[in-house]
Nucleic acid binder design. Structure first.
Lengths: 115, 115
DNA sequence: CGCATATTCAACCGACTGGTTGACGATTGC
DNA sequence: GCAATCGTCAACCAGTCGGTTGAATATGCG
């Protein structure tokens, strides 16, 4: 049974490290999809896709809901927040010599625009 | 020899997927460090740390410069930009909140500091 | 009911990972 | 010169990863 997974930076970053999984996430940005439809554009087996979806689920990046015999995959972008925050701790790295907390405040007051 | 590494999302995310490597990056936020000093707080061999530093270098997250017999490690936070932008595509996470920052502190700045 | 569809399970495979140890080249300092 | 220090290299190991195939489990449909 799906015990309550507690996504960590480890699981999130390693889930994101695979290009197939990132592509799946991008697809789910458009809309929820069934497992078979997720698999369709890829050249690998359905079982392999199923495993990727398990990994994304354990990372909290998607949820899956079974309706009838179809399992729908839904993006959960909130799971990226902790990782994003972690990275932003490094992002504002100007010449100023800020410690981690000051840097965080700077990010919070003036969030970087993803250009 | 400055082999032109072309850091990809793959290399960056998989570099970030390891807690030891994230801890190293956090340590380098404070200041540049020699390899031996990077290794000091960890319970693993110097050779293992050296391998981690190679992975961080190939991801573009740090650079290393040898002065005398000491090799200095320097954080290169710009390498996070592409990954950060990619993640921003999924969530309009507005300004980060304090909960998220506390998780950042608890999880990532917890590991032992090198003095 | 019986068959097709949707998805996972189980076993297996080769490649990669993170770790070890010991030897090694380079540099420093007595 | 010689010994200690800094860091990497090479070989090895156990475990994980991404993939396969084939069987199994649900569910829907005619």
């Amino acid at each position: 049974m799906p015990t309550a997974f507690t996504p960590t930076l480890d699981t999130v970053f390693s889930a994101l490290a695979d290009p197939t999984r990132r592509a799946i996430l991008s697809m789910l940005l458009e809309d929820d999809m069934a497992v078979t439809d997720v698999a369709e554009p890829f050249d690998i087996s359905l079982a392999a896709i199923s495993k990727h979806l398990v990994i994304l689920t354990r990372a909290g990046l998607i949820t899956q809901e079974k309706r009838g015999r179809v399992k729908w995959c839904k993006l959960e972008p909130d799971a990226l927040r902790a990782a994003s925050v972690w990275m932003q701790g490094f992002g504002q790295f100007e010449a100023v010599n800020l410690d981690a907390f000051e840097r965080f405040l700077a990010v919070e007051l003036d969030p970087p625009k993803a250009e």
